[in-house]
């Protein structure tokens, strides 16, 4: 692919309207962060819409792989093909191998959903370089690595849908979350730039910006923190997994004109001052 801007001629036309909306039958998806309840719910929703799904976690640990496998079983129970991958998403060689594995098994990769998340909150003055680097690696570098590896397959095919799941913390300042916010905001910048770079290749890149949600490890676990959160959020409630999956499916099934953009699933949290 050239790194020069495309010549000023319309590249490719619109796809014809689908017979069924939001139809992912015949598509192959890779969902990362599938060891977490949100990632698992996304994998399941893609399978419900018809996709075959490969699932990965974030660290590749044995504990995590157990969770990834149980999400994969749910995909299997819907009659879709499934593949549980054990991979450290911060290791470029491992990510490349995981994507290769999907391609070897199913000969294609149409959809990538980055749903991995490593929550980290600490006063900035007490944050070590190791913690900073680990937060950036898990939340931002992992997204870059999966986009690069999956993107190569998608660019060859001339078709791809990438959905990065990030956080309101990348949009608004949150005390004690400087490193996490920098990483999530980085995902937004990556999404916009990559969407632009690949705009004429048939690959779209979008982001779902999720508010504080029910199943996020560490958020809302502490009853006092939960009480404060539900009091200050406009929706008076945390976001549920079911509220996120529809946005991912809509973007995964999109016809190609929706790119470089953010769908905020946050119950109006970022509509407010």
């Amino acid at each position: 692919m050239s790194d020069q801007p495309s010549p000023p001629a319309a590249a490719g036309g619109a796809l014809p309207p689908p017979e069924r909306p939001f139809d992912l039958r015949g598509r192959v998806a890779l969902v990362t962060g599938a060891a977490r309840p949100l990632g698992g719910a996304i994998a399941l929703a893609l399978a419900e819409a018809g996709a075959d799904v490969a699932l990965a976690g974030l660290t590749g640990s044995a504990d995590e792989h157990f969770q990834v496998n149980s999400a994969a079983n749910q995909v299997w129970s819907l009659g879709r093909r499934h593949l549980a991958l054990q991979v450290d998403l911060t290791d470029p060689v491992a990510v490349e191998a995981a994507v290769q594995r999907v391609e070897d098994e199913w000969r294609r990769l149409d959809l990538l959903v980055n749903a991995q998340d490593l929550l980290f909150a600490m006063p900035f003055g007490e944050t070590s370089l190791e913690e900073w680097n680990a937060t950036l690696a898990a939340n931002l570098t992992s997204v870059a690595l999966t986009c690069q590896a999956a993107g190569r397959v998608m660019l060859r095919a001339g078709y791809g849908r990438i959905v990065n799941v990030a956080s309101v913390a990348g949009d608004r300042g949150v005390m004690n979350m400087t490193a996490y916010a920098a990483a999530k905001s980085g995902v937004l910048a990556l999404t916009r730039a990559l969407a632009t770079e690949w705009a004429r290749t048939g690959v779209t890149v979008n982001m779902v910006q999720v508010g504080w949600y029910e199943d996020q490890a560490g958020i809302g676990d502490d009853p006092e923190h939960r009480k404060t959160l539900t009091k200050i959020l406009p929706a008076r409630a945390l976001v549920t997994n079911d509220e996120v999956t529809g946005a991912v499916v809509m973007l995964a099934a999109d016809s190609g004109y929706f790119t470089g953009q953010v769908v905020a699933v946050d119950g109006a949290a970022t509509a407010r001052i």
Partner: peptide, 26 residues
């Protein structure tokens, strides 16, 4: 499916706002 989406600006523009008009996004 969009019950959790409120007060949002949903942009469908072929990447226009993300990249600006070409060739500036390059």
């Amino acid at each position: 499916a969009a019950d959790g989406i409120n007060g949002a600006v949903i942009v469908q523009d072929g990447g226009g706002l993300a990249g600006g008009v070409t060739p500036f996004g390059w």
